[in-house]
C-alpha cells in the first residue's frame, strides 16, 4: 500500500513553543508548491494546517503532522498528546474558545480555527480523548471531481 504514495513526511510540533508556531505549516506550504499541487489547494491546505498547528501549540504538549500525498489525495493528519477536547460539537462552534490572553495576543483564540479548517477541507475528521489528545484528518481531493 505504501508504494502508492508520492510523498510521505512527518513533522514534530512542540506544545507551548509560540516563537516557532507556524514553522511547520510554512514548510508544508513550500513542499506543496514545489511538487506542483494546484495553487488553490495549496492555499486551502496551508490555512487548515496552520490553524491546526496553532491549536497544537496552544492546547497540547506535543504533536505530529503527517503529510501524505497520493496521486488522488492530500492528507494531513495531526496527532497530539495533551488535554484533549471534552465536547467536540462545542469546540467546532464558531466563537467558542478557551484561549488565554497570551494566545489572543498572538492573533489567535477567536474560536474560528476548527470551523475554518473544516470549511477549507474537502473532508475533515476530528477525534479526541479527554486527558490524552486529539487527532485531526484534513483531506483534499487532487482529482477535479472531489474538489470544493
Amino acid at each position: 500500500m505504501n508504494d502508492e504514495y508520492v510523498l510521505s513526511q512527518k513533522f514534530k510540533i512542540k506544545g507551548g513553543d509560540f516563537s516557532n508556531a507556524g514553522r511547520t505549516s510554512t514548510s508544508i506550504k513550500e513542499i506543496l508548491k514545489e511538487i506542483g499541487i494546484d495553487p488553490s489547494i495549496v492555499i486551502r491546505a496551508s490555512i487548515a494546517v496552520y490553524e491546526a498547528e496553532m491549536n497544537v501549540v496552544m492546547y497540547a504538549n506535543k504533536g505530529m503532522v503527517t503529510l501524505n500525498i497520493t496521486p488522488v489525495k492530500l492528507h494531513l493528519k495531526l496527532e497530539d498528546e495533551g488535554q484533549g477536547i471534552a465536547d467536540i460539537d462545542q469546540a467546532m462552534k464558531e466563537g467558542f474558545s478557551t484561549a488565554t490572553h497570551e494566545m489572543r495576543e498572538m492573533g489567535f483564540g477567536a474560536g474560528m480555527g476548527l470551523p475554518n479548517i473544516k470549511k477549507n477541507a474537502d473532508r475533515f475528521k476530528i477525534a479526541s480523548r479527554l486527558g490524552e489528545g486529539t487527532t485531526l484528518d484534513i483531506i483534499f481531493c487532487l482529482n477535479k471531481t472531489g474538489n470544493k
Partner: peptide, 25 residues
Amino acid sequence: MSDVLAFGKPGILLLTGLSNSQSVR
C-alpha cells in the same frame, strides 16, 4: 490572524496592528 486566514485572499495588502512574527507567517 484567524480572521485574516478566514477572509484573506491571495494578493491582499494586509493592514494590521499585530506586530509579532505570526503576522508575517
